[in-house]
Design a binder for these strands. Structure first.
Ligand SMILES: [Mn+2]
Ligand SMILES: [Mn+2]
Ligand SMILES: [Zn+2]
Ligand SMILES: [Zn+2]
Lengths: 139, 139
DNA sequence: ATCTAACATTAGAACAATTCTAAGTCAAGA
DNA sequence: TCTTGACTTAGAATTGTTCTAATGTTAGAT
């Protein structure tokens, strides 16, 4: 789903399309590195010096609630965000703190709505380890 | 793996078995509800009034590094811990904030050591939604 | 075009979770 | 007994997130 489709969807659902909301969504569209809130905030601040942290948090929460972005709790104590909302696995490297997409096929939970009587609303398949780049560094 | 086996393993690996470490591990052994650090700390404090938060954090980190307990980052901004280290899925109810074990068979990642060139050290398959108890309440 | 009420943004304070610090305690070996 | 290193403690500091109250903006009604 490209940027304009998401912006249109937001608009059609009655959400005011402020310049800040546009900027946050656009930033995630252009930066598929699963940035932290801090990263998003300071990056936006460069082009947009008056944007506030509260707005960044509010906007991320809003976009998440509209189902347009995904929140990632893979790293202890801080949030990452992802423009891509289609279910996919994430790999966290505890050496360099990067979050990678990984493609896993054949997940038995794919498409399931319920498990053990609980209603599934979101899947967060996380994998922790050492990434390929850091494995090479190790020497 | 029962409590004595884990205590023995700790001891054999040269780790001093202090009363605090014993207490934290025992608490997790007896409380399989995936407690938060706060819960662990205040529960231990009842029987053991001088235990400090730093010790609880240090001990949880130490036990995790020995592979005797598991850290869970399913809830935004706070840690839960699990005595059980065998790979299993966790379900987080965003209504009541409980963490449940769920049994999922046929995970294609089971036993895998590598993915996309990254070294897998830990699996954290999280599922978010509304638990069976909260679904009933909703009525 | 102007008014108005609801909504959005801002800066910074407040808060919550975790980590750090420095002093004190304990245990084992010389 | 003395020394050394490891452990614990209370509380301060730090970090990430949420709240607050003032200000600014938007969109619909007039
Ligand atoms: Mn992703
Ligand atoms: Mn569990
Ligand atoms: Zn890495
Ligand atoms: Zn529930």
């Amino acid at each position: 789903m490209n940027l304009n489709e998401k912006l249109t969807e937001l608009n059609e659902k009655g959400c005011t399309l402020t310049i800040q909301r546009h900027a946050v969504l656009e930033y995630l569209y252009e930066n598929r590195t699963h940035p932290t809130v801090e990263k998003i905030y300071y990056s936006l601040k460069e082009k947009f010096s008056t944007i506030s942290k509260a707005t960044v948090y509010n906007t991320l929460e809003l976009l998440k609630n509209y189902g347009l972005i995904q929140e990632i709790t893979i790293e202890k104590g801080k949030l990452h965000f992802d423009y891509e909302v289609k279910p996919h696995h994430h790999f966290f490297c505890h050496r360099c703190n990067h979050v990678y997409d990984v493609d896993v096929v054949g997940c038995p939970l794919a498409g399931k709505k319920m498990i053990d009587g609980h209603k599934i609303e979101e899947m967060r398949p996380y994998i922790i380890g050492t990434c390929s780049k850091c494995l090479k560094k190790k020497g």
